[in-house]
Write a protein that binds this DNA or RNA. Structure first.
Length: 312
DNA sequence: AAGACGAAAGTGGTTGA
DNA sequence: TCAACAACTTTCGTCTT
């Protein structure tokens, strides 16, 4: 862990350029930006004090640090050492001249073994990228490892050629999330990776076909928990929402429909029924769909299930 | 002013010839 | 490779509270 002190030197209160106090924090990028003149006041904004515990995924996400823990998941698991270029032995004694040739050869081979070929080098940078990306998204270790495995397989099968590491890493991560039943939407991954959603999607489809990842289409209820957390809705809404989705699924209302849209509609209905309504817009935003889609879904569902919704 | 509603046109992806 | 198609989005005007 390349950790320096978590306390930043001092808190910056105003923009040095225009002395405005409207500074906004961009956690995704780790920057503090002045809203008046657009100056990036601090581009290494990471820590804002301790985050003690995270009770759920939303909190973890909002509290997580952006930086990359540097050690695990590095291609050689961070276990490598380098032989120093000083001609000293472990006790600091100078190595006699007659042994220098030997030491030199050892060093040379040691380096060559460590990051020998192109694939290993590729893997090294890729896994570093994976680490950055997944900690940005607040994903647990198990998913990183899953993504790393997928990526390794892709490397072994020579599937990366012609695709950028960035894109393949992002799609491996997306696949891993689905495999572990903690789906993130393609949009979310693309935003965090700061790259093109279409490319990631294409790479993902390619990977899943070539590696036969056999991933089922995502089920709407897997989104409910996370969306509800973001909307600060309690357990009752979540379980009622899941209930609604199950009913809708039994009635065949969900097949062919976008899972996020269905989840959003279920949450909408459920939040109203539980007395803690959220606006369509708010739900649409966290779910990554439009209000119109929510409307269409929830009308279908409400009608079939026989739930009446008063909008008064 | 904010939220919900719905019509109409547009978009990107899948399917089948 | 192309066209048809369904799902979803965008946009915009209207209605309600």
């Amino acid at each position: 862990m390349n950790v320096e002190s978590p306390k930043r030197v001092e808190k910056i209160k105003e923009c040095p350029e225009c002395s405005s106090e409207n500074l906004s924090k961009d956690y995704g990028r780790g920057e503090i930006v002045c809203e008046m003149c657009g100056l990036v006041v601090d581009d290494y904004y990471i820590d804002e004090g301790p985050e003690w515990r995270a009770f759920d995924s939303a909190q973890r996400e909002s509290r997580a640090r952006t930086g990359a823990p540097m050690n695990y998941l590095i291609h050689d698991k961070g276990l490598s050492t380098q032989i120093s270029w000083k001609n000293k032995d472990a006790y600091g004694r100078t190595i006699p001249h007659k042994n220098r040739g030997q030491i030199y050869r050892v060093r040379k081979w040691h380096r060559r073994i460590r990051i020998s070929n192109a694939t290993e080098r590729n893997l090294a940078t890729a896994l570093r990228e994976l680490d950055v990306l997944s900690s940005k998204m607040g994903l647990p270790r198990s998913i990183r490892e899953c993504a790393a495995m997928i990526y390794r397989q892709a490397v072994e099968k020579n599937l990366i050629r012609g695709r950028s590491i960035e894109i393949v890493i992002a799609s491996s991560l997306y696949a891993a999330c689905r495999k572990c039943n903690v789906p993130r939407t393609l949009t979310e991954v693309a935003q965090a990776a700061d790259s093109d959603e279409k490319q990631i999607g294409r790479a993902y489809r390619f990977l899943s076909r070539e590696l036969t990842l056999k991933l089922m289409p995502t089920k709407p209820e897997e989104y409910i928990d996370r969306f509800c957390n973001k909307l600060e809705l309690d357990r009752n809404v979540i379980s009622r929402g899941e209930n609604i989705i199950n009913q809708a699924t039994d009635l065949g209302l969900t097949s062919g429909k976008g899972p996020t849209g269905v989840a959003a509609a279920a949450i909408y209905i459920s939040s109203i029924l539980e007395g803690t309504p959220r606006t369509q817009r708010a739900i649409a935003e966290v779910a990554g769909v439009t209000e119109v889609t929510i409307r269409n879904r929830y009308k279908e569902i409400a009608e079939e299930i026989g739930i009446e919704i008063d909008t008064n």
